[in-house]
């Protein structure tokens, strides 16, 4: 199973991940990031990879469990 990991210390709330996958990520009013679905299905793998790669601050990663 895929699990999304956010390093909130690194996340700058820039929202590039949300632009890639709005069903998984949402930047909040205070600029923090909410992961809407931490364990998306296999069908969202591509989108997760795109989001991880798009993050300017390298705050995102995912683990395979």
């Amino acid at each position: 199973m895929l699990r999304i990991v956010v390093d909130h210390g690194k996340c700058a709330g820039l929202g590039m991940c949300e632009a890639e996958a709005s069903d998984l990520f949402e930047v909040q009013n205070d600029g923090s990031l909410l992961v809407l679905n931490e364990t998306p299905g296999e069908d969202r793998r591509e989108a997760v990879i795109a989001a991880v790669e798009s993050c300017p601050t390298e705050a995102l990663s995912f683990v395979q469990e």
């Binding site: 709330g13 929202g15 590039m16 949300e18 632009a19 709005s22 949402e26 930047v27 909040q28 009013n29 205070d30 600029g31």
Partner: peptide, 14 residues
């Protein structure tokens, strides 16, 4: 100071 909104517009533009 609207960090939550800007990416929603980015998607529309994209």
């Amino acid at each position: 100071d609207r960090p939550a909104q800007i990416m929603k517009y980015r998607r529309l533009i994209m």
